[in-house]
């Protein structure tokens, strides 16, 4: 795998993360399900996963960039495991609605584990680290679009979380946008 091919795969990973962040927004806006604190933390860690691919696209693939994403994915798996365990008791209906039989935090755990496996698989290809693109070569429109999409969705989450939590600690089981409630 060349560094160009690795760059394309990193851009694809960013589109995947953008799709995930957009799906979380869709659940929030369409189903009117406000994310709980642990749900927000998982969303934050999915956004943080994007730093590694952005660095790979800009500076060329490096093992240290993949390591950033690996550390994030491990922490994300820990957070989602924590939430799965909170609702593991028989008879517990879980938090929020289920998608294809699994709650969002269970899907998040699956996503973080998949990220760990995919990152490990990417690290198997040594040749991507041998042929670094010349500095100053601008990434293509495909990669630029992926970066700006994920940056935009993360920025929208700043606004959404501010509306949900206001300037205080977020509610454990949020049902209204605190900032909108204060304004009305």
């Amino acid at each position: 795998m060349t560094d160009t091919q690795a760059g394309t795969l990193n851009a694809l990973a960013l589109y995947g993360l953008a799709l995930l962040l957009a799906a979380a927004f869709a659940a929030q806006l369409v189903l009117h399900e406000l994310p709980c604190p642990l749900c927000l933390l998982q969303r934050i860690l999915f956004a943080l996963l994007a730093i590694g691919p952005i660095l790979n696209i800009r500076f060329g693939p490096r093992p240290s960039h993949y390591a950033l994403s690996l550390l994030t994915a491990v922490l994300g798996a820990a957070v989602s495991t924590r939430q799965v365990l909170l609702h593991i008791l028989p008879g517990d209906a879980g938090y929020g609605s289920a998608l294809l039989g699994h709650h969002y935090y269970t899907w998040a755990l699956t996503g973080f584990i998949a990220a760990i496996v995919l990152l490990a698989a990417m690290l198997l290809f040594d040749r991507q680290f041998d042929h670094r693109a010349a500095p100053g070569v601008a990434p293509g429109k495909f990669a630029q679009g992926a970066v700006w999409l994920v940056v935009g969705l993360t920025a929208l989450n700043v606004l959404s979380t501010l509306l949900e939590c206001g300037f205080a600690a977020c509610a454990d089981n949020p049902i209204v946008y605190e900032l909108l409630k204060q304004a009305s």
């Binding site: 604190p37 994007a50 660095l55 500076f59 920025a155 989450n157 700043v158 979380t161 300037f167």
Partner: peptide, 23 residues
């Protein structure tokens, strides 16, 4: 509030990764 700050910090880190110095 801490979650808003974290999302904001990640947005800034992404912009730093795309435009700023790597360190």
């Amino acid at each position: 509030m801490e979650f808003t700050a974290l999302f904001l910090a990640i947005t800034i880190a992404m912009l730093a990764a795309w435009h700023g110095p790597r360190p």
